[in-house]
Design a protein around this nucleic acid. Structure first.
Lengths: 110, 110
DNA sequence: TGATCAATATACAATTAAATATAATGTATG
DNA sequence: CATACATTATATTTAATTGTATATTGATCA
């Protein structure tokens, strides 16, 4: 109760996995990239769709998509002139869902 | 099925909250800080306990604790010479628990 | 075929921020 | 006031972000 929190029997030592976890956190710790990934949770989008939906200008968008691609978080499919992006990494999708629960619903404490 | 994922009916637009969310992600997107927060999920620790447990040398530890303090993620309590840190921000605790679920259990796709 | 347009990607440069080691300083206790 | 512990300052290195310019790729049509 109060503000202190304890989860004594869960012990998330996270140990060896902090490297992997922080890598994912870093990749998503950018407003543009987080918006992109959130959008892709709803299904694949082309670059121009993302550009219009998010209002991120094209080279910036492409650069951040490259970051996500190199982090293996997204995959692409080409259809004629357009390139469609989709989520590939389940961990990223799960993290976004968790963020959604934390930030976009008010404190559903159980 | 496959690698493509869709959550059509969940729509985490995240909208206005990306700023808040990325701020938290950024704060945790550092191995030292993530280890500290993971440790604190198990209850409060003094700086020297953290130093010993995590093997982070003392000024670095103190600097990262300052970052966490300024982000309002931890709070402190002084007992004689020692300062004890504890988690204060529930969102951070919830995010760490989510990370634990994602990285420290193998794919509990239920 | 080659000129052209539209969609996407890359290169580069400039700015700004992050990380961490070393050193110096603060502060409570005994 | 000496000690143990904790914090802050400084300096250096390294990385992230984003704008502008340019390049690539695929489609279209004269």
């Amino acid at each position: 109760m109060g503000t202190v929190m304890k989860f004594r029997n869960v012990r998330p030592d996270m140990g060896e996995r902090t490297a992997e976890a922080t890598a994912l956190l870093k990749t998503l710790a950018n407003q543009n990239r987080l918006k992109i990934v959130c959008t892709l949770v709803g299904g694949e989008h082309s670059v121009s769709q993302l550009e219009e939906t998010l209002g991120i200008h094209q080279p910036t968008l492409s650069q951040q998509l490259t970051v996500l691609r190199e982090a293996d978080i997204v995959a692409t499919r080409r259809d004629a002139k357009q390139v469609f992006y989709r989520l590939k990494e389940e961990k990223a999708a799960r993290l976004v869902m968790a963020l959604y629960g934390i930030f976009c619903r008010e404190h559903t404490r159980h």
